[in-house]
């Protein structure tokens, strides 16, 4: 009997941790999201579903925008991150860890500082735009800072390693002989990539996609530092409702709406990629 209990006992700290830092706060927030009142009178449980209706009707624009920005940033991360991960895994040789370190290097600097430094880089008369303007490649009034592309690029930049590392891990773990096997079985280099390397690395892309899409969608620092009017993301709304307006119920409701939308998105994404297959390859 005792032997049977042991695994559960070993898992106890994990469960306690989850309960304390996940279940209790989430339950508290769900309860909060259904209350009415204000910070002076206090918030009372009224099962006020109207908070959710407000969250959706008032902030659908920012919500959709956040999803689009997150999606854009994720796609950019795939386009940039996959070749980088591929190159390191297959051609990195002895220096793989050095290259990985290089990918991670900017991330030894604080997230906000990195974003701020982009502000200097993207400035109208800064290193990049100033130079391009002075040699006449860009019109004088061209601007990147405080636009949607600046926000999306900033997001992609800040979350790139979350894409590179999972893809790298899968590619690195993969038996590289399968590429030779594909060539041996008459596949061209492109076919070998499309038919063998890419499908095998899909779990990495899947994981990287999640790890990029979720935080980018919920991010607000990039939008507030690099964005302009009309680039507000849902994270900023939550922050404002929480800290400035002290409207905790609506802030909690927005959070759960975002969570719900993300979960739906993730499940359909997993289904599209075929989770069963994905898990199988990962288990190997």
């Amino acid at each position: 009997m005792r032997r049977k209990l042991t695994p559960y006992l070993l898992a106890l700290p994990g469960w306690a941790w989850l309960a304390m830092f996940f279940v209790v706060p989430i339950a508290g927030m769900v309860s909060l999201s259904l209350t009415s009142g204000n910070v002076i009178t206090g918030f009372y449980q009224t099962f006020n579903v109207g908070n959710y209706l407000d969250a959706i009707t008032l902030y659908s624009e920012q919500l959709v925008r956040s999803l689009l920005y997150g999606l854009g940033a994720t796609l950019i991360c795939i386009v940039i991150g996959y070749p980088a991960a591929y190159w390191i895994a297959f051609h990195g040789g002895k220096h793989k860890s050095t290259y990985l370190l290089l990918i991670l290097l900017p991330f030894f600097v604080s997230f906000v500082l990195r974003t701020i430094s982009w502000k200097f880089t993207l400035s109208d008369n800064g290193v990049v735009l100033g130079t391009l303007k002075s040699i006449g490649l860009l019109p004088a009034d061209f601007a990147v800072l405080n636009t949607a592309p600046a926000v999306v690029l900033g997001l992609a930049y800040n979350f790139l390693p979350f894409m590179v590392l999972p893809i790298y891990a899968v590619l690195e773990r993969m038996d590289h002989r399968v590429v030779e096997a594909a060539h041996d079985l008459y596949a061209s280099k492109l076919q070998a990539f499309l038919r063998v390397v890419l499908p095998i690395s899909l779990p990495g892309v899947f994981a990287g996609g999640l790890m990029t899409f979720i935080p980018t969608t919920a991010d607000y620092v990039n939008a507030s530092v690099l964005g302009g009017p009309g680039n507000t993301m849902i994270g900023s709304i939550v922050q404002t409702q929480y800290l400035v307006n002290n409207d905790y119920p609506i802030a909690a409701a927005i959070t759960f709406v975002l969570m719900g939308v993300l979960l739906i998105g993730i499940f359909s994404y997993a289904r599209a990629l075929g989770t069963e297959r994905v898990m199988e390859v990962q288990a190997k």
Partner: peptide, 18 residues
């Protein structure tokens, strides 16, 4: 601050502010 506020509120309830 958001994180702290979130946990504090969620864990302790929010009725009595005053």
């Amino acid at each position: 601050a958001m994180a702290a506020a979130g946990y504090g509120l969620a864990a302790c309830g929010v009725s009595g502010q005053k």
